[in-house]
């Protein structure tokens, strides 16, 4: 049995988000026109946290919302149907916004592909960027993140578990061996 290894703790996560917030402001020369859309479940909470951090840096409300990708997934048939999470787009929509998609883990890239399709249904942003807390490699599609909290080399059969306090009562990221899942 493989051990469970904690790779990021609460402080690490909060520092990573703060750094990503700064990078977003830097890359976009400010926070004007930004819209942060989190991918459920945990990405949605991370988007809200990032919006708050950016807002406190730039002293303004950063619009943020939730983008459900379920109906656009390409692996629907591998499991029983999933309940939809309400997509929440703030007033003002996505048109001509700089949309930053936020997710917890970037792995195959298929989730982000689905997110781009889902976003396309809603409207036409000026630009789409991607922020993830962890990039664990093993991409199956030509997709790359603009902002990464931590690059985490893993083997394909390992499990990366992200816990956030809003749902899991604790902020931490662990790697578990495949047998340990």
């Amino acid at each position: 049995m493989n051990a469970v290894k904690i790779v990021l703790e609460q402080g690490d996560i909060s520092r990573a988000l703060t750094r990503i917030a700064h990078e977003i402001i830097e890359k976009n020369r400010g926070s004007e026109n930004l819209l942060l859309l989190g991918i459920p479940t945990r990405g949605a909470y991370l988007a809200a946290r990032l919006a708050k951090i950016i807002g406190s840096i730039d002293q303004r409300e950063i619009p943020n919302g939730v983008l459900d990708i379920t109906l656009h997934r390409d692996d629907l048939r591998s499991r029983p149907p999933r309940a939809l999470t309400p997509t929440v787009i703030p007033a003002g929509g996505v048109e001509n916004k700089i949309v930053v998609l936020v997710d917890d883990v970037l792995f195959s890239g298929r989730t982000i592909r689905a997110a781009l399709d889902a976003l396309g249904e809603i409207g036409r942003p000026a630009q789409v960027q991607l922020a993830v807390l962890v990039d664990r490699g093993h991409r199956q599609l030509p997709i790359r993140a603009d902002y990464v909290g931590k690059n985490l080399p893993t083997s394909a059969d390992e499990i990366v578990r992200v816990s956030i306090s809003e749902i899991d009562e604790i902020d931490q990221i662990v790697i578990a061996g495949a047998n340990d899942a």
Binding site: P81, R82, A83
Partner: peptide
């Protein structure tokens, strides 16, 4: 990885 809510329907 986010554990989505899976559904049991008839």
């Amino acid at each position: 990885m986010t554990p989505e809510k899976l559904i049991e329907l008839p």
